[in-house]
């Protein structure tokens, strides 16, 4: 009975959705046209998605970072802290050596993706996830105790708070320099030449902050979820 009723609801909703899709109209997308035509000129970031995320709609990104922050701090209190153990396979020395070998490269890739977020595909979120993979790899191969000893959870939460605070403070810096909150070009930052590593004002700085925040947040989440009582 329950299944039948759910089926009816689902079929009605899906067909409504389908009919809507089929009768969709398109508008003239002035906004995206503007971003495409003038985005590079106004923000000096070649990657338009980054330009939108960290300049035009940077406030959204602040909210997004806040969501990760909230979830990371929630999960950290939900799971027990005292008895940290986890079910894991014992890996052979080959696995452990390879992991140690891979980690420096992961770090370089992560840092690169964060730093070049405004020039090439990537940015704070993608790079942050790659950095978080480092701690996740350590946890999976060497166990949670070792991982927690290597990167203390206090340091991780400090990094997370620091990244999030940095984002807001950079926004307030725009105000201090005479613009509005999170203003970039309009508060007289030197935007530089598009394509250079040091260009487009606060965008790379915001990227670094987000990267720190996401990396720390994700590793807190993973290490907390994997703990067993």
């Amino acid at each position: 009975m329950r299944k039948f009723a759910s089926l009816v609801v689902v079929v009605i909703l899906s067909s409504l959705l389908m009919m809507t899709f089929l009768s969709l109209s398109t508008a003239d997308y002035e906004l995206s046209e503007h971003y495409i035509n003038y985005g590079v000129e106004e923000t000096k970031a070649l990657n338009l998605v980054t330009a939108i995320l960290f300049d035009y709609r940077a406030f959204d990104t602040l909210g997004e970072a806040t969501v990760v922050f909230a979830v990371a701090s929630t999960i950290a209190f939900l799971v027990p802290k005292r008895t940290a153990s986890m079910i894991s396979a014992r890996f052979s020395i080959i696995m452990q050596q390879t992991t140690s070998l891979v980690i420096p490269f992961l770090f370089i890739i992560g840092a690169y993706i964060i730093a070049y977020g405004h020039i090439s595909p990537g940015g704070g979120f993608a790079g942050g996830v790659i950095l978080a993979v480092i701690t996740i790899l350590i946890t999976v191969t060497f166990g949670i105790r070792y991982s927690d000893r290597q990167v203390r959870s206090r340091i991780k939460s400090f990094m997370e708070s620091f990244g999030a605070m940095g984002f807001v403070l950079l926004g307030l810096l725009g105000m201090a320099l005479g613009g509005n909150f999170l203003a970039n070009a309009n508060s007289h930052f030197n935007l530089g030449v598009p394509g250079d590593l040091i260009s487009s004002g606060i965008i790379p700085h915001l990227n670094v902050m987000t990267g720190l925040k996401v990396a720390a947040g994700l590793s807190i989440m993973f290490n907390s979820l994997i703990k067993e009582e």
């Binding site: 997308y29 995206s32 971003y35 495409i36 939108i52 959204d60 979830v71 979120f125």
Partner: peptide, 19 residues
């Protein structure tokens, strides 16, 4: 580029909530 930027936000929020 706009839906791409928005979807990035939506993915992050979705992943966080799933966690």
């Amino acid at each position: 580029p706009i839906p791409q930027a928005l979807s990035l936000t939506a993915i992050v929020i979705g992943a966080a909530t799933t966690a």
